[in-house]
Design a protein around this nucleic acid. Structure first.
Length: 482
RNA sequence: GGCGACGUAGCCAAGUGGUAAGGCAGAGGUCUGCAAAACCUCCAUUCACCGGUUCGAAUCCGGUCGUCGCCUCCA
């Protein structure tokens, strides 16, 4: 079976055919770095992470570009969100950008999200954005106002609205947007804005000092690194209009070619049914969530719903997922443990057929528009088979255990990122270690009180082997770590 | 008001024409010194509701109700 994807542009499931056989060029709208990332970001980027991982698993050579927005993204008050933050913290705008870019990558690394191949910054691609804007003016798709703003003229692009199903006539009302000075049409959007002298991020342009509009960066950077037409454009569903729509309009008006062939958009993460967002204040940062839950459990939670569906966050749902994940890991742990002392030979080799069947079902699920929830179901089915085998009392040869481990490694690890190669136990921390050592010291004290010195010495010697030195004092026993 | 989704067991969730995956929780059982873990069995005659198409509908069509997203910054 071949990979099929639901293309938001055509609203149908289509066979996936990249422009160049064996290669995939993919762009995903990245974050605006003015604050720490929250679980909503985690949902989007974990979803695309698995899409990229699966494409690579299938053998595609993927170039994954995800931008960092560090300029031009304005609040509805007209303030630049990064400048606002910089003002509040008395920092250079680029200090804000650095801080939250690092924070974002730290969070993504912690979640096991594979880094994009290119993470271009908007501020580093102003010349490209200016060139593109000039091209649009030359082609009469954009106009310059007296103030030095440049707007895209939506009436020159009849397909405007094709991604979101919006109709220009219905947008005309502009009832909720105050039409900016100099705009010809309420739906026209800024490619370039003039800057007042006190505005901290500004560049020279043919239209005077200013800064790029928000939408143009994605078009410019996608073209720069992926070409005028590329395979997959991804992002959160909430950016479909106006952001994605504007990207299409700019790029296609300029090149006359399709911008992206497949549009994959992710559903939002909600809390009590309402979208998690900065503006609503109902967000949980990734850092806070990782204090409570294993990163793999968070990924599993996100991947338990299809990428295009919304996910509702709650502690109860996360806890249920964590329980399920721990059961999954129980079998993985048992396989690894059994493997240590397994003998060579083909005992239980018949299980190979079970593995093949589950691998095929897993691939069939993922081939169907990256259906991770169904693929996870297959993993649970396999888990039951593995547990049954390992608890059957049969001898199991090392080769088959290696094969099982390989399946976990590839499907659960490489593709979904929910089964780590090394299992770090929850709460393996200094406090727990200290408690365990103290407990052993107590057991040794009991043994000494019974004059069972063999047992007491055994405890002490075993601890020494583990690098824990005991010292008896008049008032008790202390330990130090080597 | 316009555009777009969604409504499947106590909870989460897959399934888009052929007779309801999987997970969590729960009940019973096997195993076990006791636990834990694991496994087995049970847990939706039914997919918001009402009509229609069809040999056959959770899936297609029409309507009703409800929830959400976008239309204004958001992944």
């Amino acid at each position: 079976m071949n990979l099929q994807v639901f293309n938001r542009l055509t609203r149908q499931k289509e066979d996936f055919k990249p422009l160049v056989e064996g290669q995939v060029k993919m762009y995903v709208c990245g974050p605006t770095v003015y604050d720490h990332a929250h679980l909503g970001h985690a949902k989007t980027y974990v979803a695309f992470d698995v899409i990229v991982r699966y494409l690579r698993y299938l053998g595609y050579k993927v170039r994954y570009v995800q931008n960092i927005t560090d300029v031009g993204h304005l609040l509805d008050t007209g303030e630049d969100r990064i400048l606002k933050k910089a003002g509040a913290l008395s920092l250079e705008p680029m200090e804000v950008v650095e801080t939250y870019t690092h924070s974002y990558f730290d969070d993504m690394d912690a979640l096991g999200v594979v880094r994009p191949d290119i993470s271009p910054r908007a501020s580093g691609h102003v010349p490209e954005q200016i060139t593109m804007t000039q091209g649009l003016i030359e082609k009469k798709h954009a106009y310059v106002t007296r103030e030095g703003d440049v707007y895209f003229d939506v009436t020159t692009f009849p397909e405007y609205g094709k991604l979101s199903g919006q109709n220009l006539d219905e947008l005309v009302g502009g009832k909720r947007v105050e039409v900016a000075e100099g705009k010809r049409h309420a739906a026209d959007f800024a490619l370039w804005r003039h800057a007042e002298p006190e505005h901290l991020m500004q560049w020279d342009s043919p239209w005077g000092r200013g800064f790029p509009g928000w939408h143009i960066e994605c078009s410019a950077m996608a073209a720069r690194y992926l070409g005028e037409t590329f395979d997959i454009h991804g992002g959160g569903l909430e950016n479909r209009f106006p952001h994605n729509e504007c990207e299409i309009a700019q790029s296609e008006a300029l090149t006359g070619k399709p911008f992206a062939n497949y549009w994959l958009l992710t559903g939002s993460l909600t809390v009590d049914g309402v979208k998690m967002s900065k503006s609503l204040g109902n967000f949980v940062t990734i850092k806070d969530a990782l204090k409570i839950y294993q990163p793999e459990a968070l990924r599993l939670f996100i991947l338990s719903s299809h990428y295009s569906s919304p996910v509702d966050y709650s502690d109860a749902a996360l806890k249920a997922t964590q329980s399920g994940w721990e059961r999954l890991m129980g079998a993985v742990r048992l396989v690894r443990y059994t493997r240590q002392n397994a003998s060579e030979g083909d005992a239980a080799a018949g299980f190979e057929a079970v593995l093949d069947e589950h691998k095929a079902r897993f691939a069939a699920a993922m081939d169907d528009d990256f259906n991770a929830p169904a693929a996870i179901g297959v993993l649970y089915d396999l888990n039951r088979e593995v547990n049954t085998l390992l608890n059957s009392g049969e001898t199991i040869g090392r080769p088959i255990l290696d094969s099982i481990e390989q399946v976990y490694h590839k499907l659960g690890g490489d593709v979904l990122g929910i089964i780590p190669d090394e299992i770090t136990e929850t709460g393996t921390d200094a406090a727990r270690q200290d408690g365990l050592i103290r407990f052993l010291i107590e057991m040794r004290a009991d043994a000494r009180a019974r004059k069972d010195f063999a047992a007491a010495d055994n405890i002490r010697n075993r601890l020494v082997d583990l690098g824990v030195m005991l010292e008896d004092r008049a008032d008790g026993t202390v330990y130090k770590l080597q």
